Computed example of a mutant assay.
Amino acid sequence: MKNCLECEAPIAGRADKKFCSDMCRNSYNNRLNSDAYNVVRNINNQLRRNRRILEEICQDDKAKTSKSTLLAKGFDFGFITSIRPTQKGNIYHFVYDYGYLELDNEVYLVVKDSRSEK
């Protein structure tokens, strides 16, 4: 007779059954995947925080802000969702539908992507 992979209790039923209950199956898989879930959850939390900061700064279609203001609010420049180069050679870094472009002297232009409103 086989034993449950989670609690080691004897398993009755189908020959290929690995767990004695749904609770053991869920517990086993949650424990197995917990590290991966933590990494993804932490990245998603930082991306949402970055987007909220950009949204707060950019009330209209465009706004200017300083790097120190962004950092003080908790913005992390290491987390973006896309990069869009312009025809002029500028590179916008986007966090979902809000982007920023570094201007001079640590000043940033923050924009809202109008294409996302369609």
Rank of each mutant, 00 (worst) to 15 (best):
N50Q: 03
K67S: 10
Y37E: 06
R115H: 09
N42V: 12
N33I: 15
D113L: 05
S116K: 12
K73E: 04
I91K: 13
Y28C: 01
N3D: 01
D22Q: 09
F75R: 02
S66I: 11
N44D: 01
Y28R: 08
F79M: 05
E55T: 13
N3C: 03
G89M: 06
S34V: 15
R52C: 12
N33P: 08
K88N: 02
E55N: 10
L70M: 02
D35E: 12
D61I: 07
S34P: 14
V40S: 08
G74N: 06
N90W: 13
S82T: 11
M1A: 10
S82M: 07
Y100N: 06
C24N: 07
Y37L: 12
Y96H: 04
K62T: 13
E102N: 09
V95L: 03
E106T: 09
K118L: 10
K67H: 13
R14K: 08
K62D: 05
L109W: 04
N50P: 07
A9S: 05
V110Q: 03
Y37M: 11
K64H: 11
V95M: 04
A9Y: 10
S66H: 06
G89T: 09
G99M: 03
C24F: 14
Y96K: 02
N33S: 07
C20Q: 04
Y96S: 00
N30R: 11
K112A: 04
F94T: 00
R48L: 14
E102G: 09
D61T: 08
N29W: 15
L109S: 00
D76N: 06
E55I: 13
D16G: 02
N105K: 06
A72P: 02
T65R: 04
N45L: 09
A36V: 11
Y98K: 06
S68F: 15
N50M: 11
Y28P: 02
T86P: 06
C7K: 07
Q87Y: 14
L71M: 04
R48V: 14
K17P: 00
E102A: 14
C58I: 08
G78I: 12
N38V: 15
N45G: 06
E55P: 10
T86C: 04
N105M: 08
D35K: 15
N42E: 05
S116V: 13
N42L: 07
K73P: 04
A12P: 07
R52F: 14
S68Q: 11
H93P: 05
S34D: 11
C4R: 04
L103H: 07
L103T: 08
S27T: 12
V107Y: 06
V110W: 08
Y100D: 01
E8T: 08
I57Y: 15
L101E: 00
G99P: 05
